[in-house]
Design a protein around this nucleic acid. Structure first.
Lengths: 339, 339
DNA sequence: CTCACCTACCAAAACGTTTTGGTCAATCGT
DNA sequence: ACGATTGACCAAAACGTTTTGGTAGGTGAG
């Protein structure tokens, strides 16, 4: 055994009476080795509980098998609450998919803020919801790594390796539903994070409102602000001289707190006010009445992003990017009203 | 430049007219190097944009700088929702702390279920809420890795490297509060995951009930079951011949759905029924009325676990383990009743 | 019988660092 | 003036694999 206490390929070779080359061949199914020899080597390796040292393999092969996951919205607010179940579901799906392909997924909180540890060698990266001109996305690309993002970076149109739901179409879909349910003055409450999701939502709303001859009622509330922000916005909206008859809030959290505020102010939901959310979460399912919401399929998004990345790493032609993931609209009590 | 296209330490050495040894010395601040030479080497390295290859460093040093994070309750249910904000907060704190010390945090979904990728070489591991006799904890320990868990494994008393809140004391604290607020028939709803948290909660409740001469009313509901489970349990509890006057549910999610059910059944909270939760979450803050809950300080737990692990990796004497993290009890509407 | 071609195996190089164990010249103490 | 010490530097070994480029012996075709 090596002085380190670890069993090396040489120990196995010595014990089996062959060269390290032959052991490597057997273990990787490469060269031509006699059946008897193969058996003996496999047996010896098992007996010695030999495990190839992945670092040495990486050094030779140039790959580490580690993929970075940067969840930008969480970087911005410090990993506190906030629409978190979306990110957990996405990260879980990505990690599972990575492990299935022999890769590990490493969580990397804001690479640009702290000095990047030397020990971090990555094969690729996934950036979730990059900001416009995102520095972390830039950093990874600068390192020459293949990167796939979840949501595009509008300031970097040449970066086509992203996955997302069709935010504009999905937004219109919800607006159409609200209109179909009788709403004629639909307000939208979007976040302030400077990313594609918010941009698309606002843009889709403004053009939709224009098309339907409705004066836009747009409010924005910072993602980092707590549930109280929803209450303020709700109060603000409902005390307007000409209040909305429906509210579409992009996060489930804000939708739920606006709904609660409305009810506290004596508004009936869905009788007098319809509510919908742009992202399903525990709050939307849990609110009373339950709130209609878009399920953005974070699992599919995470899995797809990982697969796209792994295809690129494998040098495969790679199916065309960007790739669009369909969302599911869960209709609930908050918009239940006969047509 | 090396054929790989990567700048190696030899390239720098050649360009600066010194040996690789000297470059390494300068870059790591090790040997004795003349000031002028040092300057020249640093300048050259910067010009060539030299970055030491971490894999080679790892091979030499035997360390990878990667720590595994296994979140066992999520492994059990497949990374869907459920008390998730606790885990995100914990994982975020652990990742941040790791990165601050030059380590990366790798998410490892159930190591025992899928074949462990060869490329995964770890320096240590953190296991969140291990089950009794947890196989993932066992696997990591078998590999000879230093492991710290969040919550102990009751089947492995010799494993003292864990961090946790004092579940028994905190449970009693909540029960005491409920009693102080007038409750005399307190029911407890715990999870079914076979881990220390559930064990401790149940154990503390049973002995507390015995001490206070109260007949225990204990229900258990699987963590994986959705919000509907809470409704069922709530109905069950309240339709007993002799219903409870307070419910302590270990998860915020179950507390909230039980509260909602109770209200739907016409019970006034906190007038006729008190509700408290053993873990703070978005649901407890968000329910109406807001629900009193223990904030288990996942950030502190995650940070502490990481620090404990890093101390062991650094070979430091290591402050005594296990380490206990204090929880904070947030009193809210659901238990607001004059003494 | 000989040449070519397999089969089964191996020695050495390569991956890019860090560390060990030097060498050589200049300086210091006596 | 001479041995000891120090400062500045370097060649080679080491980390544990995988891959390259072999060799030696056996076998089939001509």
């Amino acid at each position: 055994m090596a002085p380190s206490g670890r069993v090396t390929i040489r120990d196995v070779a010595r014990a089996a009476g062959v060269s390290a080359t032959t052991v490597s061949h057997v273990l990787n199914g490469k060269g031509a080795v006699a059946a008897a020899t193969r058996e003996r080597i496999l047996r010896t390796a098992a007996e010695l509980r030999y495990q190839a040292n992945p670092i040495a393999q990486s050094l030779r092969g140039g790959r580490t098998g580690v993929i970075a996951l940067a969840i930008r919205p969480l970087d911005a607010i410090g990993y506190t609450l906030q629409g978190v179940d979306y990110f957990v579901r996405l990260a879980g799906a990505a990690a599972t998919s990575a492990l299935d392909h022999g890769f590990g997924l490493m969580l990397v909180p804001d690479l640009t803020r702290r000095s990047v540890p030397a020990a971090m060698n990555l094969d690729g990266g996934i950036v979730v919801d990059p900001f416009v001109g995102d520095p972390v996305l830039a950093e990874l690309l600068d390192r020459g790594l293949p990167v796939v993002s979840t949501g595009r970076d509008p300031a970097r149109p040449e970066h086509i390796w992203w996955t997302d739901t069709d935010n504009r179409a999905e937004t219109r879909r919800v607006l159409d539903l609200l209109r179909e349910r009788g709403a004629r003055r639909i307000a939208v409450v979007a976040g302030t994070d400077d990313n594609a999701w918010n941009h698309d939502t606002v843009e889709a709303y403004l053009s939709w409102a224009h098309e339907h001859g409705q004066e836009p009622i747009l409010e924005r509330v910072p993602e980092k602000r707590g549930e109280t922000a929803g209450a303020e916005i709700g109060t603000l909206l409902l005390s307007r001289p000409n209040p909305p008859d429906a509210v579409f809030a992009s996060t489930g959290r804000h939708a739920a707190s606006i709904a609660r505020t409305a009810i506290a102010l004596g508004w009936d939901i869905p009788g007098r006010l319809l509510i919908a959310a742009g992202s399903d979460s525990e709050q939307t399912r849990f609110a009373s009445p339950a709130i209609t919401a878009l399920d953005l399929s974070p699992e599919a998004t995470g899995r797809l992003a990982m697969e796209l990345l792994l295809q690129r790493l494998a040098g495969e032609p790679g199916s065309a990017a960007p790739r669009i993931v369909p969302a599911t609209l869960h209709e609930r009590q908050s918009t239940a009203r006969p047509h």
